[in-house]
Amino acid sequence: MYVKQISVFVENKKGRLAEITKLLAENDIDISALSIADTTDFGILRLIVNKPEEAQKALKENGFAVKETKVIAIGVEDKPGGLAVALKALDDAQIGIEYMYAFVGKNDNEALVILRVEEQQKAVEVLGGCGVRVLSSDQVYSL
């Protein structure tokens, strides 16, 4: 039900992102979603990949600080208001969103979004209850 997300601490220095993506490529790891939260001094790169364990191992071996976080992946209707349905449901249930970002690709008529919320278990129930599809980890890693 939850999806493993890899977070990497990245200093604001030239070439760091290139290095990370190169490292993942060398290990034949496919990125299906990503986002960067940044400040003036550092950023956090968040990745959804097909092989989370291997990605962590490769990054750690190369000296990166890495953290695994469980997030929720959902599919919403790919039309205006599709995402709004899901977010309104969470808001009504008073579940705060820490962050969210969209997938690089998408399914037919379905946009895929990663959510990190305060109460994950409750969020999954709420989302399921309003017809939002919550993706399993296998579904996500095989995207």
Partner: peptide, 14 residues
């Protein structure tokens, strides 16, 4: 920063 200090949140690091 070590893995142990890293929290996946900008707020946490700040």
């Amino acid at each position: 920063l070590t893995d142990a200090m890293f929290s996946d949140s900008v707020k946490g690091i700040e």
